[in-house]
């Protein structure tokens, strides 16, 4: 029984850290554009399609 008290919180904590990292990436807008990055290198530097202004401070 005592091993459960250690392993369950530990595994939840571990998964929680991963979740937090992914959520931070979402907030930074890394998942806003799922297609652009794959073709972005095909554009000239000055033609990169701008990402929509996503610096909303409430997020």
């Amino acid at each position: 029984m005592s091993f459960l008290a250690l392993t369950i919180p530990l595994s939840l904590l571990l998964a929680g850290v991963m979740l937090a990292l992914v959520l931070r990436a979402v907030r930074e807008g890394q998942f806003d554009d799922w297609e652009g990055p794959a073709i972005r290198h095909l554009y000239d530097d000055d033609e990169v399609p701008e990402e929509p202004a996503s610096s909303d401070p409430t997020h």
């Binding site: 939840l12 959520l23 929509p52 996503s54």
Partner: peptide
């Protein structure tokens, strides 16, 4: 056009990821 859609897409993705975390465990 894309701005409100982007915001709600992010909120939906956050909700989905948290649900994935809970459901996975």
């Amino acid at each position: 056009l894309d701005r409100p859609a982007d915001r709600s897409a992010r909120a939906a993705l956050t909700r989905l990821l948290i649900a994935a975390f809970l459901a996975g465990n």
